[in-house]
Amino acid sequence: MKDIQELFRNAFERHSDELFRHASLRLPDRDRALELTQECFLRAWQYAERGEEIREIRPFLFRTLRHLIIDEYRKAKSFSLDEMLEDDDGGQIESHLPRDYTNTLEAAFDRFDGARAVEAMRELPDLYREVLAMRYIDSLTISEIAALVEESENVVSVRLHRGLKKLRALLESE
């Protein structure tokens, strides 16, 4: 038991900020983000205490947080699930694009002010915001993101791509 407790303490110190950061980007309410971050750790603890194995704590925490956020969207009165999801056909068209098209697209962002982009991020549909946050703020790899959101790497790439396009459109309209 002692070892698990130490592990948890370390996990908390190491990951609480980034989990909170992720939650507060995706939820409108700082208080709610706080509560969900806390709930995330508590659930992870309950899971471990039941004797279940957690192989890697960071993805586990992100996954747990993700489920909590999904539940949150379901419960919210002013948002609808439609806002969270968007028409996602898995990217039939984009799957044929060359790999480095996204790199080119990324480079096009350099003329925007990254500091002001935080506001724009909050305006994106949550579906895109999720993957953009995971990629550019949480610094997860495409395969890590794919495992978390339970989609193929291809779908993730496409979603990132579309998210970037939407983000650029938002920044351009300012």
Partner: peptide, 13 residues
């Protein structure tokens, strides 16, 4: 990573 995203990340920190 381009500077935009570096800025964004820094801002989010």
């Amino acid at each position: 990573m381009t500077s935009f995203f570096k800025q964004l990340k820094r801002e989010m920190q």
